[in-house]
Design a binder for these strands. Sequence first.
DNA 1: CCCTCCCACTACGAATTGTAGTGGAAATTC
DNA 2: GAATTTCCACTACAATTCGTAGTGGGAGGG
Lengths: 138, 138
Amino acid sequence: MNIKNFKYDEVGLNRFFGPLEASIMEYLWDKNEQSIKAVQQSLELDKPINFNTVMTVMNRLVEKGILEKRSEGRLSLFRPVQSKAEFLEEQSKKLTENLLDEFGGAVISHMLDAMKDADQALIEKLEQKIQSLKKDKL
Amino acid sequence: MNIKNFKYDEVGLNRFFGPLEASIMEYLWDKNEQSIKAVQQSLELDKPINFNTVMTVMNRLVEKGILEKRSEGRLSLFRPVQSKAEFLEEQSKKLTENLLDEFGGAVISHMLDAMKDADQALIEKLEQKIQSLKKDKL
DNA sequence: CCCTCCCACTACGAATTGTAGTGGAAATTC
DNA sequence: GAATTTCCACTACAATTCGTAGTGGGAGGG
């Protein structure tokens, strides 16, 4: 799983992937294991896309450790290594740790500042976490 | 100020810039306003670097809105648009907001989990923030 | 008047991502 | 069994980003 960049100016999967990569991942996370043909046909519904283009990008995703490739007879099937939830969990965790390493506790203040619309339950949860952190310090 | 990517696998300014860009910014944040020559000579202390290489990269930083360029006679002087502190503040804020937008309150939990070594003062501050957030909700 | 210093313009290579052509091997069809 | 279709491997090219550097021009000092 080899994601290198987090893109400020994009949204969702496009923060981690190129646009075509993102569409492919979106589809595969929905359908789990699929052939290139199936992916290409699905993308084609939106706009024309060459089979080989899809294949190349999918093979690159395998090289990057995002997809797994399996042969069934002469058919190649591709499937995400992680679920979308697992992927997002891992990325948000990595980014969070990176941010803390880089900027220290100050980010947490930014977080809370930005979090005006947090719901009550989350705030309670945070409060408890803080309490337990305080205890650990004693 | 046009930073696009945050790099997982780098550290410090290298998360936002290429390595040469980062060295240049580091120097200019220390010295404020300097000529290309001054920058190049400073970098040269580490390893040989062509004057034109430095110039090209500095001009690109101007195009990106990171540096400002000013002519004094026929000499060009370059200076960061923001202080390093301002820059880091802005980036950490942007990233924080992006992360929250993207992943919701869950990141905060990650934060606190990762924050085992937070100091007492920070924890107090967080507690107060939480309290005021709670009040706002009433 | 020549030389040196500084800058503008231009170009190239590696890496990343999207694009697609060519051709080969297997399956299907006649 | 030969022809056609299906699917994949290999290869290549374009745009972008970043580091690199060559060529040449203009301004000032000796």
